[in-house]
Design a protein around this nucleic acid. Structure first.
Lengths: 245, 245
DNA sequence: ATTATCTATAGATCTATAGATAATGC
DNA sequence: ATTATCTATAGATCTATAGATAATGC
């Protein structure tokens, strides 16, 4: 029975022990523990309304100890935002490469479905962070700019795919407006998670189908797009289904 | 040339003069000046991130003077929320009374259009307030409960109208999910305003049309619903069009 | 020696209260 | 006398820094 600490399961780490003994077999790095606690608090209470003391308490360390891992509260937020960028470039290129151009409905369905999955699987609904006014207003550094830039590109992709499809059906909504409506539909997933609604595969598909309906599609075309999308997903993204919280 | 103050235009009020002389012909009551400034700051920076000092500065009074009009910051928020309830009861009853039951598309279009107008015309995008986590989390008193309750009823009305219509078109989305998608679409107006996009009549109609498309409607039926809705609006709501900011 | 924490605290807020004061109104 | 402000300030945070300390690692 040695006098050392934090031996249960995981390898003991150097450094003075915490005032609250570290969780058994916690393989999570301290920095990540802070990020997880912060994500949970920021999304449930808001950024400005969350104090560094609360974060520290959730982790089980003293408030000052946060500053060994991060230079400040803003940097914690920046790290979370950085982990939340929805890499539209990659997605869109991949979709355009693999989906035949004669079925834009499949392209849009895919984009929406993948995006919904991204938002649904992100730990702790971090997709919400970029929508908070206190995050948006204070120029939260270049990470935030990068984030907004990526989102703008994504909206543009939705507008492109959507308009291509809408034209087929005589839907004349301006492409920018249509893009906004589509991304709004997809980001409904953020609201759902915030309300504690479980987001399963059915729901994800309903949302993607909704995007197609906004462009004037009907039953058969939607079923078809869904089929193509499912095949694509089966080929590429066999990592996890949407979750709650 | 009397020594009195605040005579320009409006009637001079009792009370010690402000350190910054009151605006010329400001007929706005001090309490409403505080509410307007708060709405602007809360929606642009967030509730928790806005200090009482900032509010006072925006009004042109000292921080402590706020407390003559409100018992605290929370009460300012409560007053704003109270002024923002979207009275679904009234709307829905009115629509059901006047729109023939054989065209549910007109009922849904109307509900969406009126709701969009409500959100678009509300001073300073206050519709956003109820979505902020710092507002939601701390149990901000019964005003907030009332607000949420009304929103729940509204979602239920969307679900009812939407499902009625969707069935006609073989759209099988569960009614709760459909209601959420519809209200999400309508509340896109909040995002638009936050992004500084002008919300005109065309945009409002596009959003309402989008709601119908989510239920499977196509061109002719949408045009019809729009016509009915426009007639209804012309009969009832001749007060102002949607605005920006 | 290095690492990760701790304790203690400075300095900057921020909210709210107490009491004074400068107008109008009777 | 009443009203609406002001000045001054208490008390409670909250963020961040300085320096001590208790582990591991060599």
């Amino acid at each position: 029975m040695s006098a050392s600490v934090a031996v249960e399961g995981g390898r003991a780490r150097p450094g003075r022990p915490r005032h609250i003994p570290v969780q058994k077999s916690s393989s999570v790095a301290p920095r990540d523990q802070i990020l997880q606690a912060s994500a949970s608090l920021f999304t449930s209470k808001g950024f400005a309304a969350t104090s560094t003391r609360e974060i520290a308490e959730a982790v089980g360390i003293r408030q000052a100890s946060l500053y060994y891992h991060f230079v400040g509260k803003d940097e914690i937020l920046a790290a979370l935002l950085g982990a939340t960028v929805r890499p539209s470039q990659v997605k869109v290129a991949q979709i355009e490469a693999e989906v035949p151009p004669e079925c834009p409905e499949a392209a849009l369905f895919l984009l929406a479905l993948i995006d919904v999955h991204t938002l649904a699987n992100a730990p702790h609904n971090v997709g919400m962070l970029a929508l908070l006014p206190d995050v948006v207003s204070a120029g939260k550094g270049e990470v935030y700019v990068e984030f907004q830039d990526e989102r703008r590109k994504l909206a543009s992709a939705y507008a492109t795919f959507g308009t291509r499809l809408a034209k087929q059906h005589g839907v004349t909504t301006a492409d920018e407006a249509l893009g906004a409506m589509l991304i709004q539909q997809v980001e409904g997933i953020i609201t759902l998670r915030a309300d504690g609604v479980a987001v399963d595969e059915v729901r994800a598909n309903e949302i993607a189908a909704g995007c197609l309906r906004l462009c004037g599609c009907r039953g058969d075309q939607i079923s078809n797009a869904q089929q193509v999308a499912e095949d694509f997903v089966a080929r590429h993204l066999r990592r996890g289904a949407p979750t709650t919280s």
